[in-house]
Design a protein around this nucleic acid. Structure first.
Lengths: 249, 249
DNA sequence: ATGGATTTGTGCGTATGTATT
DNA sequence: TAATACATACGCACAAATCCA
């Protein structure tokens, strides 16, 4: 953004330590493109002065980011940015995990983390057009690209119609391929609601995130071309690694 | 979500004090609908046990949320939730601020916060199909619904073609109406990229948020029906107050 | 090769904030 | 409310690595 002056501000007694706030500011600056990749950060004394804190405090922030794999510090030379670009994840009527990321990553796949049969909750039942309490299968999956987790999804299917989809999913490693086994050759995104929130403890573990990380949440209903709901899903994307690109719905 | 066990976990030495973490967890629980509106929170001793901390620590968390206007504590009765539901903001080919929120709010309008003429930055120039450095007008606006800020947008227009749009905007209070004055009867969303991040200092001020709040960021290019770019925009939505509902693009 | 400037790394004493008992 | 332990933040000083004139 042109003509934007520095608006960093550090707040004391906020419940968040100064070093953590500074670390977050630095992450934000990197994301905003203030530092080119592999470029040097301003020296510790400069950062300390900019944020109005002691150099030790800045050092704590840098140490945390080094630990998180964002920065690399070299004695006598400086501190350097290691971070990578965000993946651009397409969201459209026919988005499929593997096809959408072509060209951005060399390797991508989905792992099945868990599955269970359970009675449909209110919102799952509504999404799938079933009565509340109808048995549904829940699949918990994680999408990875170049070895990094980029999505975590819970998806629900009517248990009667898709019995054994968990085993098929393990075998094929693809939702699209699994649905084909059940006679679903094509499906469309009927509705999608997006929100964002802090990652909860399960997100942190499944997506390998640091406390305080943000997840984008997409709740979607997928239907067959003739409009029958087949899947209700809630997908969480780590906001620091993924952006969502809307295409024709 | 059915059958979901409690997964809250508190981390020590993370740079975020325990009371702040617990406050965030409570916010999260409220957002997830664990407590009905105006319902009582579990008593302090129960919360202390759930999170594995001392009751003093829980009290600090509650005090902070009372301070932030999220909870109300009454001696001898309990602690109660004050927060409201999130607005569902439609994102589609023809989304307009005022029309999309009908039925959810009784009052809504846009305020022009600032405007400026400036040379187009790289990304603005790309979005509008102009040469970098071409003069553009930037409008900074805030959307409000029922007196609460629900969006903050920066939008750019070619200065030559839309000279004086800032004054028109002040007069009409509507982007759509302002563009009509310049002969634009219809426009479409050509591309949209969504991401999420922590609110920066300017977001906190403009949207009246607490430090650590999350904003959903939508970067969009709007075009005339024949495909000419007329507007490049970056809109920030406070994630705690707004969700985005995708409709046909 | 030398010296000075710059930058990160380390040590220590003190004060304050946080959390438990 | 008080005592205790630990984390956070500061100030000062100096060491070690790097860079450049």
């Amino acid at each position: 953004m042109a003509g934007q002056q520095r608006a960093d501000s550090i707040e004391r007694r906020s419940g968040v330590s100064l070093w953590r706030q500074i670390a977050d500011q630095v992450l934000h600056s990197i994301a905003a493109g203030d530092f080119a990749e592999n470029a040097a950060l301003p020296p510790e004394v400069a950062l300390a002065e900019r944020y109005g804190v002691n150099r030790h405090t800045v050092r704590s922030a840098i140490a945390a980011l080094v630990q998180e794999g964002v920065l690399r510090a070299e004695q006598g030379r400086g501190t350097f940015v290691l971070s990578r670009k965000r993946l651009s994840y397409p969201i459209g009527a026919r988005t499929r995990f593997s096809t959408g990321l072509q060209g951005q990553t060399s390797e991508r796949h989905i792992v099945l983390l868990a599955s269970a049969i359970e009675p449909a909750s209110q919102r799952v039942a509504e999404g799938l057009g079933l009565a509340k309490g109808t048995e549904v299968i829940r699949l918990e999956t994680r999408g990875e690209a170049d070895g990094r987790p980029v999505s975590r999804a819970a998806s629900w299917y009517e248990a009667k119609r898709f019995a054994g989809i968990d085993a098929v999913m393990t075998e094929t490693g693809s939702i699209t391929a699994s649905l084909k086994r059940f006679g679903i050759d094509d499906y469309l995104r009927q509705s999608t609601v997006l929100s964002a929130r802090h990652a909860d403890a399960t997100d942190l573990a499944a997506l390998n995130l640091q406390p305080g990380a943000i997840v984008l949440v997409a709740v979607a209903v997928n239907v067959t071309p003739d409009g029958r709901p087949i899947q209700f899903s809630e997908t969480r994307f780590p906001a620091e690694r993924v952006e969502l690109k809307l295409s024709a719905l």
